[in-house]
Nucleic acid binder design. Sequence first.
DNA 1: CACAGGATCGTT
DNA 2: ACGATCCTGTGT
Length: 199
Amino acid sequence: MSILEQAFYERDALDVARDLLGKRLVRRGVEVVITEVEAYRFPGDTANHCRMGRTPRNAVMWGPPGHAYVYVCYGIHQMLNLVTNPEGEGAAVLIRACQPVRGLRTIQRRRGDKRGPVLLTGPGKVGAALGLDRAMNGHALYRPGGLEVHDGPAPPEILSGPRVGIDYASEAHRDAPWRLAASGTPWVSKPASLHRVGP
DNA sequence: CACAGGATCGTT
DNA sequence: ACGATCCTGTGT
């Protein structure tokens, strides 16, 4: 039940992404396990919101690690990212899917009273289930209150694949397997494009 | 100031 | 396959 400290996030986004699988997001009686993530790395990642430098929207990504970067996608969806890397480097991990632990009623109400993996398999769904909005942008995740990230058991096996919805990126970055997910769970979006990590 | 498009989702 | 929905980033 311990909250992850800021130092956990002060590393390459890909390393943080891998270590976030199995950790828990906790907010106002709702608790979920992180099952799928994407790393947006720095420098040089042509899929990263920070690829063109600092802007008003991505400012939080350039700030200290361990803060929430919440932005609106397609004018509708609240996307939750966790800022990584040392301050001054624009990098983050996108939370793409989770599995409920507590507060299933609340999650279902926020998600149109649906059931099963459709509740939380997709970044917009995670934002909705946690009741996030842009007021959470910049929130310090390593301090108690609001939204917290707790420790949890690492999954026994990890899958990886290309990131979703980044056709605008260079070919190398479109192909990079920087989308990570726990193996053997239905609480993952688009399982077809994931494969086992290993030699 | 105008405008094209997006780290998506749900329905058709 | 497509529309929702609106803000961001870029260009003039």
